[in-house]
Write a protein that binds this DNA or RNA. Structure first.
Lengths: 343, 343
DNA sequence: CTGTTAGCGCTTTCAG
DNA sequence: CTGAAAGCGCTAACAG
C-alpha cells in the first residue's frame, strides 16, 4: 500500500530525480548501454520500478525514427477481412514471424485507396505488408515512391518485392491430373473471372490442355457470381451449353468446386465416376465433403510468413528477392482418379 | 516529372516555408481550424500537395496524447490466434467497428503476461480490448490500475467493463432441449475441463438438470484432451463407464460434439435415434455434418463489436455498463429431437 | 486571422 | 562514466 496511484504517468525526468541522476543516465540504463556503472543502473531500475515508469514508445519512436510497428494492409471490398479464411491463414503466418521479431502488427482492411498511402507515409509503421491483388496499379506505383519498405503478398508488382503463389502452376497441375485420369471434355468454373488469381489458374489450365492438344472453348468456361452458389450457377451454365457434358471440371477454388458438385449431382452426373472434379485451396470443408474433394493446395501460412520475413530483412537493410513463388501441390482425393482406365 | 524525390520527408516547417506562412497556420489548415482565411488554407494545402507532405502521426500523438490506435490483445497458448475461427469472428466484429470509427487496430497475441502490461502502458494505444479468458487475475488487477481504458471480451473482472457470453445459459438451453426430447441418461463431454467457458456451460447444464431432479454423476463427465479427437476420447470414456449408455449428450463445443458423434457411431449408437447430441458454437462444419449438428449459437461478431463499441464509448468519456451479456440460442438440427415421443 | 514560442518524452552528441 | 543541452515534428496557448 505504500505506492499510491500517481496523478500522471511518470516520465524519464521523474525517474532521474528519484534516482538522483540525469535523464541521459536513465535513458542509458533503459537501453542497456554498456557504458554505465552497474550500481547506477541498478539504482535507476529501482526508481523505474518504484514509480511504475514505462517509457513512452511514442517519444522514443519520434526520436529514433522507428516504431516497431508493421502495417498489414488488406485491400478488400469484402470487409472484415479477417473473416476470410484465406486471409486469416496468411495473417496467421505473418503474425507468427512478426511476434518472434518483437514487432507489433497494425491491421487495416482498407476500403479507400488513399488509406493505404496515408498509412504508408504517416510514420505509424516502419514497413508495410500489402496482402491481396485487389490493389490498383496506380496505388502500387505511388507506394513504390514512398521511402517505406513494402512487401507485396499474393500480388506482384515491378519494383516492389513480392511473394506470390504459383497460380498458373496450380492450373497446370489440375489439368495434368485430369488428363491423367482420362478426361477428354474439360470445363472451368469460377465465381468470377476478374480475380487475377482465378485468371492465372485458368491460364495455367488452358495452357496445359493446349500442350496436350486440347482447346478449352468459351462455352466450357463460366462464372456464376460471388456468392455461396456461384460455382453451382457456373456449373449449371456449362452443363446447359455442352453436350455431351464435360467429364473433367476444374473449379477456380474449393467453394466453387463444392458448389459445382451439387449441380453435377442434381444433373444426374456421378462424381468421380462420370465427372472428375478438382478445386483449389484445400479449405477445411474439402476433406469433409462427400466424396472428399481433390484439390490443389499451397502453404498459406508460409505465404504470409515469407512475406513477413522479407519485410523484416528489408527493415534490417538486407536485400530480398524481387519475386518469390510459393509452390502448389495437388491433393488427390475422392472426386477424381489418376488412373486412366477406371472411368 | 517536375517533382523529384526529396532527400528526406517534408515536415510542417518545409510546408510553411513553401507556402510563405508560419507553421501554426499549416497546423491549422491541417486540422480544419475554422479561424483561417480560405485563401491561406488553399495555399497551404497546395504546398502540402507539392511537397508530398504527410504529417507525422507520431509527433502529433506525442503532442495530443492520443494515437488513434486501439490494442486488441489475445492471451493464448495457441498462437497464432487468428487461426482460431472463434477469435477470427470476434476480431472481425471488432475490426468493423474500429474501422468505422477511424481507429487503427494493433493486434497482439501475447504469450508472456508482461507483454500485456507493457502494451497497456507504453502509450502505443489509446485503449485496450482484451479477448479471452486465458488471462490470470493478477494481470487483470494490475491492468485495472493502469489509467488506460480497457474492455474485456469473453471474460469478466470486477472493475473492468466486460462483455461476456452467457455460457451458463447455453448449458441450460442444451439441458432443457435434451430434456424436452425425452432424454433420461445425460452426459457431458469436452476437450478439457479447465477452460472457464466450458466449465460455465457444464455448470448451466448441471443446474438445469438438477432443476428437473436429475443429477449428473462424475462418470458422465469426461475430458478427452485438446486435440482434434478430444471429443472422441471423452465420449469413449463415458461409454465405457456407463451402462446403459447415455441417451442425451451435451458437448462443450462443436468440434467435441462432432468428434463424439464418431465415437457414438463406432459404438453402434445411432444419432439421434438412440442418442441425442448437442454442441456449442455453430461452427461452419456443424451444419454440414451428417446428420447436421444441433448446437447452441451466439453472435461472435456481435461479441467483438459490442466490446469495441464500449471501448470507443470509454475513449469518448462516456459511461459503459460494467457487464454486458450476449445471449445464446439453441439451433435445432439433425442430432436431436425436441418432441418427446419419437425415441 | 496569423506568427512566435514553449513544450510532449525521449535519445544523443558533446563536454566534463 | 555521467550530465547538460539540443532537438525529433507537431499542437496550443499567447500575442499581435
Amino acid at each position: 500500500m505504500s505506492l499510491r496511484a500517481r496523478r500522471a504517468k511518470a516520465t524519464i525526468r521523474d525517474v532521474a530525480a528519484y534516482a538522483g541522476v540525469g535523464i541521459a543516465t536513465v535513458s542509458r540504463a533503459l537501453n542497456d548501454d554498456p557504458d554505465i556503472a552497474a550500481a547506477t543502473r541498478a539504482r535507476v531500475l529501482e526508481a523505474c520500478e518504484a514509480l511504475a515508469f514505462r517509457r513512452s514508445s511514442l517519444a522514443r519512436s519520434l526520436k529514433v525514427g522507428a516504431t516497431d510497428n508493421v502495417g498489414v494492409a488488406i485491400m478488400s471490398r469484402h470487409a472484415p477481412v479477417i473473416l476470410n479464411p484465406f486471409y486469416a491463414e496468411v495473417i496467421g503466418g505473418i503474425e507468427g514471424v512478426l511476434e518472434d521479431a518483437g514487432k507489433h502488427l497494425l491491421l487495416s482492411s482498407l476500403k479507400r485507396r488513399d488509406d493505404l498511402l496515408d498509412l504508408a507515409s504517416e510514420g505509424r509503421v516502419d514497413g508495410l505488408l500489402v496482402v491481396g491483388c485487389d490493389v490498383v496499379p496506380e496505388v502500387l506505383t505511388r507506394l513504390r515512391d514512398v521511402e517505406l519498405p513494402v512487401v507485396l503478398i499474393d500480388n506482384a508488382f515491378e519494383g516492389i518485392p513480392s511473394v506470390v503463389v504459383d497460380h498458373v502452376g496450380a492450373g497446370s497441375q489440375a489439368a495434368r491430373h485430369l488428363l491423367d485420369g482420362g478426361g477428354t471434355r474439360f470445363a472451368f468454373v469460377a465465381e468470377n473471372l476478374e480475380n487475377p488469381n482465378f485468371r492465372a489458374r485458368l491460364e495455367g489450365f488452358r495452357r496445359a490442355l493446349a500442350g496436350a492438344g486440347i482447346e478449352l472453348t468459351p462455352e466450357a468456361i463460366a462464372a456464376g457470381g460471388d456468392s455461396w452458389d456461384g460455382g453451382y450457377a457456373a456449373m449449371s451454365r456449362v452443363l446447359a451449353a455442352i453436350h455431351p457434358p464435360p467429364d473433367a471440371v476444374f473449379a477456380a477454388n474449393d467453394p466453387a468446386a463444392l458448389s459445382a458438385a451439387k449441380a453435377l449431382n442434381e444433373h444426374g452426373l456421378r462424381v468421380p465416376d462420370q465427372v472428375a472434379l478438382v478445386g483449389v485451396d484445400d479449405i477445411h470443408l474439402a476433406a469433409h465433403h462427400a466424396p472428399p474433394l481433390t484439390t490443389v493446395r499451397f502453404d498459406k501460412r508460409g505465404l504470409g510468413a515469407t512475406g513477413a520475413r522479407h519485410l523484416l530483412d528489408r527493415l534490417a537493410g538486407r536485400q530480398v528477392p524481387a519475386l518469390t513463388t510459393i509452390a502448389t501441390e495437388l491433393v488427390e482425393r475422392g472426386t477424381s482418379r489418376s488412373d486412366r482406365g477406371t472411368r
